[in-house]
Design a protein around this nucleic acid. Structure first.
Lengths: 206, 206
DNA sequence: ATTAGGATGTGTATTCTTTCACAAACGAAC
DNA sequence: GTTCGTTTGTGAAAGAATACACATCCTAAT
């Protein structure tokens, strides 16, 4: 564990965790790398090797105790705790995100929403008050927020990102269809469903 | 071009295309692999190699004519035409997707929405009438739909996927937080923002 | 014409990922 | 206790992807 773990390995852990949660819901208590692999379309060797970066979580001949493995993965990913998140942008997209229950169900709590449109500020969005962008910096700093979601038009996304980074945000989930440039040590993940569609159309025969 | 092109290459083409569209909006007409790489955080060599799979689109000493490169990429990805898509699931998530303008802006038109909840059927969702699930199969077959989006609860997603596949759908954008198993030749892409968040928290220091 | 400054396309080297395959270990059955 | 079927964890091999580096080509300026 002294060497750095490849990001591609990290990116699969949440997938494993999600599958394990599903197995729990189905009432199962033990699983194997083969079963997981079959479900996920990943080779069992890959799963074992990925997990082995963090320790030996399984038992030979038996497999993995699901509850234990989930707990270990949660700790590795640092999602055994709850995280507070800010959302920037209260348009259609921001609105959908604010209403989506899936975030807080899995430990990510939106604690404030920001927008710069005069008519939106002060209004309610879901259970949140929409705050003016001018207070974004201060809010992030004061509440020591590390994670933000950007749901503003592409033209404003970089500027918002700059503000967030300056205020100390280290992880950005960007819904704006544009690449952000951020300093070393700040992580960005992109969500643009159209990119996924365009990737699949390549394979669609005439 | 006789050899199969790696999927990882395909997955980057939409990103290039998006960046090129942005450059156009900014009034630029020519670019280089270096400039693109800088913007995207990708090495220029990678961009050149990716593009070279499909032909020589650039000119030495000059770079790439943006309009031409966009057109080429659109053809490669088969997004120079418009695509019809069905959406399954008219809950919060499906509703947000139906209202999202970004799809049809980029050539993907939702032409029908399906749900199995008696109270939703017949209602309007955005500009669409919500149709009963029982007609999904027939509709997809009749209209020769190749692409579907799934926005139903995880428990029902596999069953919906099976129906879609049987009716001839070849590409599924799955918003349900679960892995789908589909036969060879059917493509699935996943959207689960929580996975992205969990991937980033790994890197957040205490 | 010639030269200088860039930029592409690509063969090669390097690095990163995945798969293979097997020793070691476990549990159940007898 | 021993055997058998199974499953992990992991070195080593194979395979893929990325980065390097340079010959080639292009434009513009002199």
């Amino acid at each position: 564990m002294p060497t750095e773990i490849p990001d591609i390995v990290i990116s699969r852990l949440p997938v494993y965790l999600r599958a394990l949660e599903r197995l729990t819901q189905e009432g199962q208590e033990v699983t194997s790398s083969h079963e997981l692999g079959r479900r996920l379309g990943i080779s069992s060797a890959q799963i074992r090797k990925d997990l082995s970066h963090f320790g030996g979580f399984g038992k030979q001949g038996t497999g993995y105790k699901i509850a234990f493995l989930k707990e270990q993965l949660r700790q590795v990913l640092k999602v055994e705790r709850e995280w507070n998140v800010v959302l920037v942008g209260a348009g259609d997209l921001g609105s959908a995100i604010a209403h989506y229950r899936g975030f807080s169900d899995r430990g990510f709590h939106i604690i404030s929403v920001f927008d710069n449109s005069a008519e939106k500020i002060g209004r309610k969005l879901s259970t949140y008050d929409i705050e003016p962008m001018s207070q974004l910096d201060e809010f992030v700093t004061e509440h020591d927020i590390r994670i933000a979601m950007i749901a503003v038009p592409a033209e404003h996304a970089q500027q918002v990102a700059d503000t967030l980074v300056k205020a100390g945000v280290k992880a950005i989930l960007n819904y704006a269809p544009i690449n952000l440039s951020v300093p070393e040590g700040v992580h960005v993940q992109y969500i643009d469903p159209v990119l996924h569609l365009q990737r699949m159309t390549y394979y669609l025969s005439e």
